[in-house]
């Protein structure tokens, strides 16, 4: 192999190693620079365990008696915001997803338009969407619902478009060759193939939306977050604990429901 006494073996070519080294170095430098300049007060970090413990002490005992009076209605409202927001998102995401699937709509400009809608929906955080819609619609569940819906379009639409693009072209060609009108091609060719993925995506998003709609109330967009905000501002930590516990239970239940339904439909 070589004229040298020994065989040489190295896992990567020098070029590959250089690229990897550069990436690692970049990470290390960025991390070091961030650690140096970020304004962290170390005393606060050392103090954290005591503070957390103090927080938990104030949370205990949980004020369960507040649930019927102050929490239940908000919790139901949260679930409605999540569900209605998801439904709205589904209705809006289907056309956008179809526009975005390059194997259905063969106009690049429309594909790009759809991609733009999807990206802007996703790159703005839920809480930021909530702020925007509170400014537009005023505080309350309406802003929350629209916020959840807008934020979900990007997620559902993107994954739906991908599911459509992965469809097997065979049956679609057959339908097109048979001269079926476009809506029939979509309903009988694409939809049956993409439907399981679509419902899976929608369910998954609903699960996420339950979590998100629990916090958008912090900026005034309705639901249990508003109760949380009030309780914290008044330092009612035992109520805060109750709210957190309620959110936790609902989130767990939602996840269980989704897992069970997914098992059945997929």
């Amino acid at each position: 192999m070589t004229t040298a006494d020994h065989y040489r073996w190295q896992r990567f070519t020098p070029r590959e190693r250089l690229a990897r080294f550069a990436v690692f170095l970049g990470f290390a430098v960025a991390l070091a620079a961030s650690m140096r300049t970020v304004e962290v007060i170390p005393e606060f970090l050392y103090d954290a365990p005591t503070q957390v413990l103090d927080l938990f002490k104030r949370m205990w005992p949980i004020e369960y008696s507040y649930y019927p009076e102050g929490v239940h209605h908000a919790l139901v409202e949260t679930l409605h915001i999540a569900s209605l927001g998801t439904l709205l998102a589904i209705v809006m995401a289907i056309p956008v997803g179809i526009l975005g699937a390059s194997n259905i709509v063969r106009v690049p400009a429309l594909n790009w338009l759809a991609k733009l809608i999807l990206v802007s929906s996703r790159s703005v955080n839920t809480l930021v969407w909530a702020l925007l819609f509170v400014a537009v619609f005023g505080p309350g569940a309406l802003a929350g619902t629209i916020c959840i819906a807008f934020r979900s379009i990007g997620f559902v639409g993107k994954l739906f478009a991908e599911a459509l693009e992965e469809c097997d072209p065979g049956p679609i060609e057959a339908l097109t060759a048979a001269g079926a009108p476009w809506p029939s091609v979509f309903l009988k060719g694409f939809w049956p193939q993409a439907a399981p993925a679509f419902w899976g995506i929608a369910l998954f998003r609903w699960d996420i939306n339950v979590r998100e709609s629990a916090v958008i109330g912090l900026v005034g967009a309705g639901g249990i977050g508003m109760v949380l905000d009030t309780a914290m501002n008044l330092f009612h930590w035992d109520r805060v604990a109750l709210v957190l516990l309620s959110i936790f239970s609902v989130v767990i239940i939602a996840e269980l429901v989704v897992t069970n339904i997914r098992k059945r439909i997929i």
Binding site: V40, L45, V52, L55, L127, R211, M232
Partner: peptide
């Protein structure tokens, strides 16, 4: 996973004060 990051953020703000930490 079960709590939204914002809720964690609230708790950590109470625990370690305002700021990037």
């Amino acid at each position: 996973r079960s709590f939204h990051p914002v809720i964690f953020a609230i708790l950590f703000v109470k625990a370690v004060g305002f700021g990037p930490l």
